[in-house]
Design a protein around this nucleic acid. Structure first.
Length: 309
DNA sequence: AATAGACTCAACCGCGAGTCC
DNA sequence: TGGACTCGCGGTTGAGTCTAT
């Protein structure tokens, strides 16, 4: 379609792009808006869906008086207006789950997003393309390569686990202090999953410890081995990490940063430490455990043996 | 302060599958 | 059976924002 694009300055809608069809007769009826949605359009769409429900998007668009395609309405509703849509940075738990599920299913964004309550396939896809592929580029390899998968398993995922443990530990300590009952938490010598069980449930998701299992029907087909399933401790590059202990990261943001960790307020905590870890791995002549894993991909279940809640 | 390049993410596009007539 | 239509998915784009120089 050789459509003519212009800014819709003459219509009563806020400035936006409209399509004028080449067909003169249809032009008047084919004024379709594109580009960012306005508040009015959002209200119109949300109100109509609330009253009549989802589905039949083309018909809905016409009936609601929206100068949008049904496709556009559906996308706007699902990715933005739908109740329960979560916005903002991905938490370390979500990042870890994305890495794991992508290793199983590949670019099945909607399937992956279905296991991240409130997240859309578009968000997951964007996260992968911007964050993950950026790291692959830094490594000079493809995201589908063994090298990158091993880097994720041996560098990225343990780092995320550290962060999750640190955050949860700090939160637990804070909660205990607030209750003026700190000694109870330390003297109980409780395993982490008991400690963390006091944490509020994340969204509507199942607890992550169970999540990796419950949400992975084909988990049995994943046969990859990893350091945690064969060793009692992480690879050397992580044992030597200045931030390899929970205490190293949980005491304070400042200390964490001084120790070489990313800020506790930085959700994509690996961004700032990627180069550092990469350099360390190269210095240690580490090939990301490629030889140890053979042809098998890593699995979240391999490195996440104890429930986090 | 200005500019260029990098990055993010909302939105669009094309295509295949499913449904209806 | 097959054509029209709808839906949903994955890939791509580009405007706005951020960051480095």
């Amino acid at each position: 379609m050789d459509a003519l694009w212009k800014q819709g300055s003459s219509c009563d809608w806020p400035a936006a792009t409209v399509i004028i069809s080449d067909d003169d007769d249809a032009a008047a009826a084919e004024l379709l808006r594109r580009g960012p949605w306005t508040v009015d359009e959002d209200a119109l769409l949300a109100g109509y869906v609330a009253a009549h429900g989802e589905g039949r998007w083309n018909e809905l668009a016409r009936a609601a008086g929206l100068r949008r395609t049904g496709k556009s309405c559906r996308l706007r509703w699902l990715n933005y207006l739908r109740p329960g849509v979560r916005r903002g940075d991905f938490t370390p738990r979500e990042q870890l789950l994305i890495l794991d599920l992508h290793s199983r299913w590949g670019n099945r964004w909607s399937k992956i997003a279905a296991h991240l309550p409130g997240r859309t396939d578009n968000e997951v896809k964007n996260y992968w393309r911007t964050r993950v592929q950026k790291h692959a580029k830094q490594l000079g390899c493809d995201v589908g390569s063994h090298r990158f998968h091993d880097a994720m398993r041996n560098l990225w995922m343990p780092r995320l686990l550290e962060r999750i443990h640190a955050d949860d530990s700090a939160a637990a300590v804070a909660a205990a202090a607030a209750a003026d009952n700190v000694s109870h938490y330390y003297s109980a010598a409780s395993p982490s999953h008991e400690l963390l069980s006091s944490q509020p449930a994340y969204g509507n998701a199942a607890p992550m410890g169970n999540c990796a299992r419950a949400l992975s029907p084909d988990a049995s087909s994943v046969t990859g081995s990893s350091w945690s399933s064969r060793e009692a401790s992480p690879p050397s590059q992580f044992q030597s990490s200045s931030c390899s202990t929970m205490a190293g990261c949980s005491t304070s943001t400042e200390q964490c940063q001084n120790n070489g960790c990313s800020s506790a307020t930085s959700v994509d905590m690996f961004d700032k430490s990627w180069s550092e870890l990469l350099a360390r791995a190269n210095h240690d002549d580490t090939e990301f455990g490629l030889g140890e894993t053979g042809d098998n991909w890593w699995s979240l279940e391999d490195i996440w043996e104890e429930p986090l809640y």
